[in-house]
Nucleic acid binder design. Structure first.
Length: 473
RNA sequence: GGUCCCAUCGUCUAGAGGCCCAGGACGCGGCCCUCUCAAGGCCAAAACACGGGUUCGAAUCCCGUUGGGACCGCCA
């Protein structure tokens, strides 16, 4: 039997970290077993479902490269199926009509909670005579007994039916509810493995009972542990960004998130770095842990940096371009991009950081940080800078090695140490004291801009080099 | 309140009775390298929640305690 998994989000918000991991594990399990991965949109709550959310979820999955084989299926387009199933259950007396008013139910629940009683429906309509002309909901008649299932992650779990309430299958407006839809669809779509968050454990016995009532094959279940925030409560906006797409905006590589999410709850020995194919090859539910995990942004950041360091510059370029664009720089036609990326990848943990750090390469005019200029653009350095400029003009090709040679000559002739020359040059070229290695940076900046900026620095250098009090030469 | 789930360094985890006075990774601290910042290399601190069993032997199995979490909707 081919393995079929599904990811079934409800379009009531963006794709969040937890949902993304559920989707990923379903994807990996299906791929690993050469099965199919189905996408189903659970939009039976018309009031809360939006097209915007739907797009956000699809966008998130595509960004993470979690491609589905089938769907998306929309539950809102399958309402007839669910009603049919409910009618069938009604017919077999496995379900019954309930005339209780929702408000009344709500009141009873609140009262029960207040009195510390289980807030469960008491089943009073099981035996109630028909109330013609009254709107009714359809409830499942939970049979007596006990349900056991063997969770692929958590192991054996069983529930006494006495703990289950007669759940609503069809609302009084005849729209179906979650548990019914899930079971009907998972059966119809021949889902073999239901992999979802462990907040669904309590739903599982109800769903198993429904499968049995409807004569469907019960799939295998695997309940993933929750992802928690730093305070060990369920991950939410309070803990920072939870939207997958927010990570794109922050300059994360999609695969860094995938790798991080995979390792949150799953492991393969001591390994930390996994490409997508490697994940597919190595993923198995046996290696998924049972306990919930805390989302650790620092580790994600480390992974992101790892992938920034190892992804070819050519692949990084279009991504960097996007971030530069939001900073108002259009570098699409700039041929230096790949060289620039190479100088920055070791020191930028996100693409956003890289874009910001690369700004000096693209600016027409740079401005000096006051402190930096004051400290390094001094009288004494004027001549060496002139000399350097002169030497650099002759450098051809303008490669890192050749630039270094020009520097060596200047150092030789002036007796300066590299540090004494490099920092002023750095300020002259970038405006600040922090940048990539001086030679690689100069080569990436390009001959024209380098010489232009050094010469430009010669003027203000004289003006700003007023010696500090007591240090008069 | 009831039911269910979970429990190894701060965090993610390895560990499927002896290989473990517990290994890796992130982060943190130190040192080295060094033209700045990084990156890199090396070193260090840091955990089997507790109590009972079972066993020649337990982080690993069982029970209990404690602590965390989830669920208890005509939401999904």
């Amino acid at each position: 039997m081919t393995v079929r998994t599904r990811f079934a989000p409800s379009p009531t918000g963006y794709l969040h970290i937890g949902g993304a991991r559920t989707a990923l594990f379903n994807y990996l399990f299906a791929r690993h077993n050469r099965g199919q991965f189905v996408l189903r949109i659970e939009d039976t709550d018309a009031a809360r479902s939006t097209g915007e959310s739907l797009n956000a979820i699809l966008e998130g999955m595509l960004w993470l490269d979690l491609k589905w084989d089938e769907g998306p299926y929309y539950q809102s387009k399958r309402l007839g199926l669910y009603r049919e199933a409910a009618a069938q259950l009604l017919e077999k007396n496995l379900a019954y009509r309930c005339w209780c008013a929702p408000e009344e139910l709500e009141e009873r629940r609140k009262l029960a909670l207040k009195e510390n009683r289980p807030p469960r429906y008491d089943g009073r309509c099981r035996t109630r005579p028909a109330q013609p002309a009254q709107p009714f909901a359809v409830r499942f008649r939970v049979p007596p007994g006990k349900t056991f299932f063997n969770d692929m992650i958590k192991g054996g779990i069983s529930f006494e039916h006495a703990e289950l309430e007669d759940l609503v299958l069809l609302r009084s407006d005849s729209t179906p509810t979650y548990n019914l839809c899930v079971v009907v669809d998972d059966a119809a779509m021949r889902i073999t493995h239901v992999i979802r968050g462990d907040d669904h454990i309590a739903n599982t016995p109800k769903q198993i009972l429904l499968y049995e009532a409807l004569g469907g094959t019960v799939p295998s279940f695997a309940h993933l542990p929750m992802i928690l925030g730093s305070d060990k409560t369920r991950l939410s906006k309070r803990h920072g960004a939870t939207s997958v797409m927010a990570y794109k905006e922050m300059g994360y590589l999609p695969h860094a998130l995938v790798n991080y999410l995979a390792r949150l709850g799953w492991s393969s020995g001591d390994e930390e770095i996994f490409g997508m194919n490697e994940l597919i090859e190595k993923f198995s539910l046996e290696n998924v842990g049972k306990s919930s995990g805390v989302f650790n942004p620092e580790k994600l950041l480390w992974l992101n940096h790892h992938y920034i360091k190892t992804t070819p510059a050519g692949e990084l370029k279009p991504l960097l371009l996007q971030h530069l664009k939001t900073l108002g720089v259009d570098a699409a036609r700039d041929e230096r991009c790949e060289a620039i990326i190479s100088t920055l990848r070791e020191r930028a943990k996100t693409l956003k950081e890289m874009a910001e750090a690369s700004l000096f390469y693209f600016r027409e005019k740079i401005s000096y940080e006051e402190k930096a200029a004051k400290k390094f653009l001094t009288h004494e350095i004027l001549e060496p800078l002139k000399l350097l400029s002169k030497k650099l003009k002759k450098v051809e090709p303008f490669s890192e090695d050749n630039v270094k040679k020009a520097f060596d000559e200047v150092l030789e002739e002036t007796g300066l140490k590299l540090g004494e020359l490099a920092q002023p040059v750095r300020v002259a070229l970038t405006g600040g004291t922090v940048s990539p290695g001086i030679f690689e940076m100069i080569a990436a900046l390009g001959k024209e801009k380098t010489i232009e900026r050094i010469e430009e620095s010669l003027t203000p250098a004289a003006a700003w080099s007023s010696p500090r009090p007591g240090k008069e030469e």
